[in-house]
Nucleic acid binder design. Structure first.
Lengths: 204, 204
DNA sequence: TTCTAAAATTGAGTCAATTCTGTTTTTGTG
DNA sequence: CACAAAAACAGAATTGACTCAATTTTAGAA
C-alpha cells in the first residue's frame, strides 16, 4: 500500500498540520477556522474531517510532536544525571519546561489541556494521557537511577514520589499557561522551592 | 432595591440554575441545549445570556456552590485537627474528595475544569482559580496549625508544602474524573500513599 | 393615575464546527 | 485497456451557542 493513494494521504496529512500550526500560532486556536485551514491546505472541509475527528485532534497531533521531543531530550538526563538530587530534578524538569513553548503558544497549551479533560476518550484525550504517563515514568526512572547511584534512600517509595513530583510540576505548569504574563523563570523557581522539601526528605 | 424587579431577578436566577443542574445531570453538559434550559426555566434564550455570559458560567455557578460547601466543611478540620499529621491531612483531603460528587457528576467536573483552563479570564475561569487558591490556603492553614501544635517541624516551608499537597491532590482528582470507572476509595488510597512520603519528612 | 426613562426580555439572525450525501479518484482484475 | 468496487473528496446542509435590534415591563416622578 505505498502507491499513489498512500503518498497523497501522507501529503495531505502534512499539509493540514502545517496549515493548522501556522494558523493556530497566527490567529489562535479559536480564531483558526476549519474553512481557512482547509483552504490553506488545499483540501476541502470534509477531507479534514476524514483525517481528524475534530478540531482538537489537529491540535493534538501538534502537541504530540512537541511532547515526544521533550521526552527524547529527557532521556539524556536520566542516563547521566547530575550527582546531586536537587540538581538532577531541576535539570529534568527544566528541560520539560524550557522546551514547552518551542512550538506551542500558551493558548495552544490551554486548549490542548482543556480538550484532554473534556474528551478523555477521544483519540487526542487518550494520547495526551499517555504522554502524561510517559513523563511520569521518566521522572520515576530518574528516581530509580538516583536510588541505584545511592543518592536517594532505597526505602523511599519511588513510584509514588515520581507521580507526586510530576503532578506538582504539571499543576504548576497549568497555572503558568493560564496566566499570559507568567514567566518561565518564576515557574522554575517556584517548583524548585517545592521540590526542596522533597529533596531534603529523600536524600541519603 | 428589593422591589418586584429584584425579586423576579433572583427568581429567574434560581430557575435557570435549577433547570440547568437538572439537565446537566440528565443529558450531560454538552447534551443540555441552551434552548432547552431556557424552556425549562420559562425564560427566553436571550435572558439566559443576560444573566450569564456563556454556558460555562452557568455550570460555574453550580460548581461554586459545591466548592464553597467543601471549604466550609474543611474549616472544622483546620480548627480541630486529628493529633497525627497523616490523619489530619487524610481527613481534610478526604472531606474534599468525598463531597466532590454530591452535586456534580464527573462529566460536569471535566467540563468545569476544561473551561477554567480554556478561558482563564472569563468570570468562571477567575472564580475557579480563586476556589483553587482558597483550597490551597486551607491546606496551608492546616499545616500552620499543625506546626503551632508542634506536630510539624517549624523549619518546614509551610506555604510551599501546602501548595505541593494541593497540586498533587488536584492532579489526582483530575485523573479521577477523567476515568469514569475510577472509584473514590482508590483515589484516596493513592493520595495517602503519596502523602506518606511527605508525612515522614515533616513530622517532628 | 399617567407618563417617561431605564432595565429587562424576546426570538429571529449570525457564525463556525461538524455531518451527510452524491461525486470523483484510485485500485485491482480480466 | 476497460470496468466494478472501495476509498476518499467536496461542499451544501445541519446544529447549537451566542448576539442584537425591537418590544415589553418596571420604577419613580408629577
Amino acid at each position: 500500500m505505498s502507491g499513489l493513494r498512500a503518498r497523497q494521504k501522507a501529503d495531505r496529512h502534512r499539509r493540514i498540520i502545517e496549515a493548522a500550526a501556522a494558523l493556530f500560532r497566527d490567529a489562535g486556536y479559536e480564531g483558526a477556522k476549519i474553512e481557512t485551514i482547509a483552504a490553506q491546505a488545499e483540501v476541502s472541509v470534509g477531507t479534514i474531517y476524514n483525517y481528524y475527528q475534530n478540531k482538537g485532534d489537529i491540535l493534538g497531533a501538534i502537541v504530540s510532536m512537541e511532547v515526544n521531543e521533550v521526552l527524547n531530550a529527557g532521556r539524556g538526563v536520566v542516563a547521566n544525571p547530575p550527582a546531586n538530587v536537587g540538581d538532577a530534578l531541576d535539570t529534568l524538569l527544566g528541560i520539560y519546561i524550557e522546551h514547552s513553548l518551542h512550538y506551542l503558544s500558551k493558548e495552544m497549551w490551554r486548549q490542548a489541556m482543556a480538550i484532554s479533560t473534556q474528551l478523555p476518550d477521544s483519540p487526542f484525550g487518550q494520547a495526551y494521557t499517555a504522554l502524561d504517563r510517559a513523563l511520569t515514568e521518566q521522572i520515576r526512572a530518574l528516581i530509580a537511577r538516583l536510588q541505584a547511584l545511592g543518592l536517594v534512600r532505597r526505602d523511599i517509595d519511588g513510584p509514588a514520589l515520581g507521580e507526586l513530583i510530576f503532578n506538582n510540576m504539571n499543576m504548576m505548569f497549568i497555572e503558568f499557561v493560564k496566566r499570559e504574563e507568567a514567566r518561565i523563570a518564576e515557574l522554575r523557581t517556584a517548583i524548585r522551592r517545592q521540590n526542596r522539601i522533597l529533596v531534603a526528605a529523600i536524600g541519603v
